[in-house]
Amino acid sequence: MTTARDTISEIGKRADAPRFYSPPLAPEPEPEAKQEIGIRITEQQLRARRSRSIAIALALGAFVLVIFAVTMVRLGSGVLTGPDYMRPAQTSK
């Protein structure tokens, strides 16, 4: 506790004297509420997306099978022998 007679220098010698001016700190800012970035998918939307994905997979699988089957039909046994330029040349006697 300081009295009226205390001088500034005397105050400075005391152990509990303030060493520097420290303005009261501003209160810590509240952390901003975390905002959801992007799209939150509902259960129903997730189900719809899954069913669409399965349908696309099945359609692509069927497409591959059709291409395979038509290739087999069109080439027949030729698919095993390969194109002409890969066959060994026949030598005539």
Binding site: I39, I41, Q45, A48, S51, R52, I54
Partner: peptide, 14 residues
């Protein structure tokens, strides 16, 4: 602005 995820099922596309 973002697009709302679709609710369309396979039946809707058919």
């Amino acid at each position: 602005a973002h697009a709302e995820p679709s609710l369309a099922g396979v039946g809707d596309y058919i």
